[in-house]
Each structure stands twice: as structure tokens, then as C-alpha cells.
Design a protein around this nucleic acid. Sequence first.
DNA 1: GATATGTGTCAGGAATCTTTGACAGGTGAC
DNA 2: GTCACCTGTCAAAGATTCCTGACACATATC
Lengths: 123, 123
Amino acid sequence: MPEAPPPAPTGDELLKVLSALGNPHRMRIVAALMESRNYVSALARLIGMGRPLLHMHLQRLEAAGLVAGTLEVAEDGKTVKYFDVTPFFYELTPRVVAQAAATITDTTETDRTAGRSAKEEAK
Amino acid sequence: MPEAPPPAPTGDELLKVLSALGNPHRMRIVAALMESRNYVSALARLIGMGRPLLHMHLQRLEAAGLVAGTLEVAEDGKTVKYFDVTPFFYELTPRVVAQAAATITDTTETDRTAGRSAKEEAK
DNA sequence: GATATGTGTCAGGAATCTTTGACAGGTGAC
DNA sequence: GTCACCTGTCAAAGATTCCTGACACATATC
């Protein structure tokens, strides 16, 4: 019965994941890495993209925990950084979104003046 | 046996959904609409946001099929637009992402020059 | 009429993301 | 040393997104 209970992701976590995956290039990168792990230079010319750009996208994906990079040393001494996709799993429904929204660490939290019940406002 | 088979979203569809949900304000909007449907003006002051801005976010969410708006006429004759969240459900895993990535209608599809096996490139 | 509420849109600036080209290392092979 | 690979970073330009303050238009109430 290893029945995994619905894991409730943190607002910030889900936010990073969604914004990371909400980009055509990043989606394609994940797709390419699904077929086979690869290192950045090879992957760059495989999907026809500049290395600095790919580097940035990979960074974004890694920050979201969707891919993992390991700096390895090939047999010939060359230093190479391989990337693999991590077996992530997120369930996207109104409930988990609402739940996540409640735990967002908005950096723009400049006003702590709040106080209105926000209930009578609805009418 | 109403076992729902894993629905494979289109690349463009998933892209719209993810980029729509990958925004703190939009997540909060969904959360607010989960508690109770509401019309844009009331919702605007409920979550403390300008109407034009809210309008734009709602539009984005509706375009992604995450919320639905209906223009109703209240008993007193006022025209009001109510929004409800649609019961969406997406499964986010490497596989569905890779699958979706394959069906992306990239508007930047300028080069059909491809042809390399993209296999020997990996080495 | 004037006021208050609702709807929507538009133009322009602010903030952010994306993209590119150049640079600075490192190692192995000729 | 020189060449061919790999790694990473930086600054500046380009393209999007986000946000705000008007504006126009309806209806009901005073």
C-alpha cells in the first residue's frame, strides 16, 4: 500500500515549477533530456540554441527541481556537466492551486496595514 | 470503471495553462474564486487590485480554460460578469511534458532546413 | 440632472524575461 | 605553443509581461 497521498506543494515551489515549465524552450529541453541525458554543449547544438541561453534555461529548471546537473569527468579528462530530468510529479487542480496560493511568500509584501475582514468587501 | 485515462494535453494548451498559473496574482485569483464565485469589481477590491489589471488576468485565465465568466443581469437590472473556476485537472510529469513539447506550434518556426539525425550530434 | 455602481478598452511607463556576443578559464592532442 | 573541446559569466539589446490612470458606455437611485 505505498499509496502516495496527494502532496501539497508550497506556493513558492509550485510557482517556480509552473513558471519554469511554462516556456516552449524549457519544455523542449525536458523532452530532449527524457530521451537521453546529455551535457550542455551537446544539448545546445542538438536543439539549436546558444550555450549561454541554454545554460540559463537549465539553471531555471534546476532551481525548480525539475532537472539535476552533475559535473563529471570523462575518461579522457574532459570536464563535462550532464543533466538528467528528475522524476517529478505534480497534480494541477483548483484545490491544490488554492491551497498553494495561501502559502505564497510574496516579496512585494510591503504593506502590513491590512485589517479589513475582506468579507463585507465582497458585497 | 470510470477510470479516466491519462489525457494528453496539447503543447500549446499546456503552455497556456502553465504560464497562466505561474503567477502569484493569478493563483490568488483562482483561490478567491474557489471560495465563492464573484464578479470582477467586487473581486478587484476583495484582493486589492485595479480593475483593468484584474480584467487582464481573468482574461488570461479564461483563455487557458481555467475559469469561466458569464455576463448576467442582476435583479436590479445591473449587468454583472460573474466568474467561476472550471474543474480542471492536469498531471505534471516528465512524460506528459515531453509528449506535449512534441506538439508545440511555435510561431518562430522559421527553419524547416532540419535533416540531421540529431543522434550523432549528441556525441 | 447628478451620483453611484457596473461593464469594457486604451496608451504609456515600469518591471521582467529572453537572447546574443564576447570574454575568461580549464584539459587533452598535435 | 596552437588547436579543439569543455566549463562558466557578464553586459547590453530585444521582446514580453505587468501595472496604472484615464476614458467611454450602460443602468438604477436620489
